[in-house]
Write a protein that binds this DNA or RNA. Sequence first.
DNA 1: CCAGACGTTGTT
DNA 2: GTCTGG
DNA 3: CCAGACGTTGTT
DNA 4: GTCTGG
Length: 254
Amino acid sequence: MCGRFSLRASAGAVQEAFALAEPPPLAPRYNIAPAQPVLTVRQGRMGAREAVLLLWGLVPSSAKHPALGARLINARAETCAVKPSFRAAFRHRRCLVPADGYYEWQRAAAGGGKPLRQPYHLRLTEGGPFGIGALWEHWQDPAGNELETVVLLTTAPNAVSAAIHDWMPLIVLPQHYERWLDPRIGKVEALADIMAPYPAEPMTAVAVGAYVNSARNEGPLCLEPPASPASSAPPRGVPASSPQQARLFDDTET
DNA sequence: CCAGACGTTGTT
DNA sequence: GTCTGG
DNA sequence: CCAGACGTTGTT
DNA sequence: GTCTGG
């Protein structure tokens, strides 16, 4: 699952990572949430790559109204090529959403306690930006009002992500960007190899405080460690946290 | 044929 | 639009 | 994803 | 519980 992410990288770093002609409009973000505009990299038939802001939460082109509460924020990579709401977008409107980390909430272990959820920030240990595989869609009502929206794809978790949740965002390898973005390619057979879990080795998961829970909160406080660390009772499969920072990586199960 | 849904996660 | 259910 | 609201009439 | 807002 991927319902919240960060993008702190500079416009220059994102321009270079995604081979953009222009530096994208970009301010550091620590808490990007559904229903907000997200930077999206896509490609036209003539091959020009562009970065635009689209609303996160796909409104299918068939929707009568851009149902604000029923937007689709994630779609499964394994099935999006055949689902009616995503099929056309998969064939013609694949895109990448730049991020440099995403948040996952780990459900508390079974027991009497409150159903508190512990958020983690998952990112490349090296720290750079990456591209989340996504689809965009165009919607227009009879009056001519237009809306462009985007949905993030999910896939099976790697070892780092599996300790926290059952899914992870589809992270596309840089060597696959060109093929993924090419609108002339639409057959799932020509794209299936791209839709695999990103390897666990380059990734790190860090427990963070509840500040990130509210989509109204923004800024570096989103990455502060939890006040009462998850180390008090690390759930199964999760190594105990260090006092300073709960670095999460199980080297034994990659 | 027409009518109605079309998505995910999580929880029970 | 396109697929599923009846 | 999580947080927060969830209703009406009337008055300012 | 369920829907909307961010």
